[in-house]
Design a protein around this nucleic acid. Structure first.
Lengths: 352, 352
DNA sequence: AACTTTTGCACAATCGTTTGCGCATTTACA
DNA sequence: TGTAAATGCGCAAACGATTGTGCAAAAGTT
């Protein structure tokens, strides 16, 4: 019959043996405890026949291990985090772990509560994409000794490994791309000041200018938020400034949406009237009015690295050394940068 | 001192009372069991001071309730599901539940395994966005009597509530929009044949044509997948057909990306050379070469309804009646449809 | 004062596993 | 044949909470 058995005791009773033996067989410890091949087979067959699966809650209680990983992101609707989450979930599952998804709503208070929540749920580890600038709640959390990994950023001063994009190089390459096309008045619309993602990018932008003997004009570095509105506002401001830039480096995809909206309202075209490079490649990037040149972050690689480091720390009982892994981004060149040297630019509009 | 207590026994020992009393106080059952106000206060204070939180695994084992909801989506990187997931997570958390996120990778075999996985993890309920056309594994799963809700689609014949967009009306409105602009050769690039999402949309498209006395040409209903490639392939085919359509209704955002790529490669412009309306509004929809008219699904409402129905079923111990809730979509009119009646179309490019 | 009722809390079982230890029984060896 | 080693498996405690039942001590009643 297609009968079902609810727990190990029932299964043991059916076979006239003890739960101990059943447990040992099912956990592959038959040899260690000298369970006979005959009994072993009997148990395995019965487990299959009666569709028995151990209760993972009871198991978790006994073993103090839930095979569960908490994932906290600022906004799962943000394509970047959604992609990362997808790979994290995949890699985790491949290793027997499930993901508890938490959205911190870009709110540091929520993030703090989520850390406690996950601790209460006894997750075996946490992958955190932190929000904002404060880290007090995180260092507080680290006292609990739950293996954790930070992604997307790194937190100087905290003893926690991280996996993030090499943002410095990304911005450097993008800026160099402008310079190579003959731009010299290049603006940079930044996100939240003070977090590593942002400062690294700004530093890369600055250094690229310097290394090519261009002066860094601080009025060309504007903004304070990764959102669309900031992109819009700063673009409006830049367009009204005395010495209007010819190119804009947008430090997030949302910022670039704001830039495009402002340009569109001002009747300006990309790349003819304004050049634009944006961080974060998107599925639609190739299909914009002008296919956009972007700095693409290697989301899958970030996710894979994060899971791997976390699992190592979980298995080794903590901290296989504090690493700050940087993943190199890729500059995807399309057609949103005007060549100021008047040499015709090949049309890349079909480059995906 | 800022000491911490690991379990209820330690806390009880500290106060010289039994774990029983501590448990009762912390669960708000002090009155039911006549715990004195003095003791109650003592417990509450100590719990706070020593930062005690009950072990949810142990609790889950005893109560047979994990306060956990499984969420299975075909692709969390798809903005539609990412948005829905965000709201589901928020609403669930508001009610004390956490989300275990599972990505079925658009694979029915994986989906089937995930259902078992979640059952083994003793989730209190499941929200499922099903994949493909087979439902055998789902009806098999329903025997486990775990409260569940289907989103994005409905499954005729299965006893499971669902929350989905009123796809029929969405497609009907979009098609009518074409017709109102003077189109009569309107193609429809569809997704997976046989699932409710698709058939409802195709039916809406068909009925809109019929009700306006236009003939339905079956060669104008093409495709069999919600992906970008299908959009591309079918568009290429349609462009090569004898009687080329003047408008395309794309039944998913990915399909419309494929359509755009094919049009772009053929040197055709939207809306001048081809009109396009797509299902699923996206953040970028307003910023495309031509801001796109879309059928927007009310993701948050879908998510909220799904969580609410699920929680009701969980609390009532199953099935508050099988509902098939339909959420009305919204037609967002931008500028991807050419007015064939030669009356100039107002530029909506700044409409967000 | 004797009895009943109320008050205040604790005992011990239970949820479903895992595991250290131990105990028969069989086999090996001299 | 007697003893040592190997074989095969079970007992019972433990993980950390919840809860039906019970039992003293205090308070109330006549």
């Amino acid at each position: 019959m297609d009968q079902t058995v609810r727990n190990i005791k029932e299964l043991a009773a059916l076979l006239n043996i003890s739960p101990t033996t059943v447990s040992r067989v099912l956990n592959g410890k038959a040899d260690d405890y000298r369970i006979s091949p005959a009994t072993t087979k009997k148990v395995l067959d019965a487990a299959r026949e009666f569709n028995y699966h151990p209760n993972r809650i009871a198991r978790g209680l006994r073993l103090e291990k839930t095979e569960t990983i908490g994932l906290i992101v600022p906004d799962i609707a943000n394509p970047f985090f959604a992609h990362v989450a997808k790979t994290i979930e995949f890699e985790a599952r491949r290793n027997g772990y499930s993901i508890i998804l938490c959205d911190s709503l870009d709110d540091i208070e929520t993030e703090s509560e989520l850390l406690k929540l996950l601790a209460g749920r006894k997750v075996d580890g946490i992958i955190l994409a932190p929000v904002g600038t404060g880290t007090g709640h995180i260092s507080e959390f680290l006292k609990r000794e739950i293996p954790s990994v930070v992604i997307d950023r790194y937190l100087p001063g905290l003893d926690i490994p991280s996996v993030s994009t090499d943002n410095y190089t990304g911005a450097y390459l993008a800026t160099e791309h402008f310079i190579a096309a003959g731009h010299s008045r290049i603006a940079c619309i930044q996100g939240i000041n003070g977090i590593s993602v942002n400062t690294d990018r700004v530093d890369g932008y600055r250094d690229a200018l310097k290394n090519h003997n261009l002066t860094v004009d601080n009025s060309m570095i504007a903004g304070d938020d990764f959102g669309e509105k900031n992109g819009y506002d700063q673009t409006v401001r830049l367009l009204g400034s005395e010495c209007r830039p010819t190119a804009i480096l947008a430090l997030s995809n949302l910022i670039s949406l704001g830039v495009m909206r402002a340009l569109s309202e001002a009747g300006l075209k990309i790349p003819d009237d304004m050049s634009l490079v944006s961080f974060d490649d998107q599925p639609y990037s190739a299909f914009l009015a002008s296919p956009m040149t972007t700095v693409e972050q290697m989301k899958e690689e970030i996710a894979r690295e994060a899971v791997q480091i976390l699992l190592e720390n979980i298995n080794s009982g903590r901290s296989a050394g504090k690493v700050n892994k940087k993943i190199m981004p890729e500059l995807i060149i399309r057609n949103s940068v005007k060549n100021m040297r008047k040499i015709p630019v090949r049309d890349h509009s079909s480059h995906l």
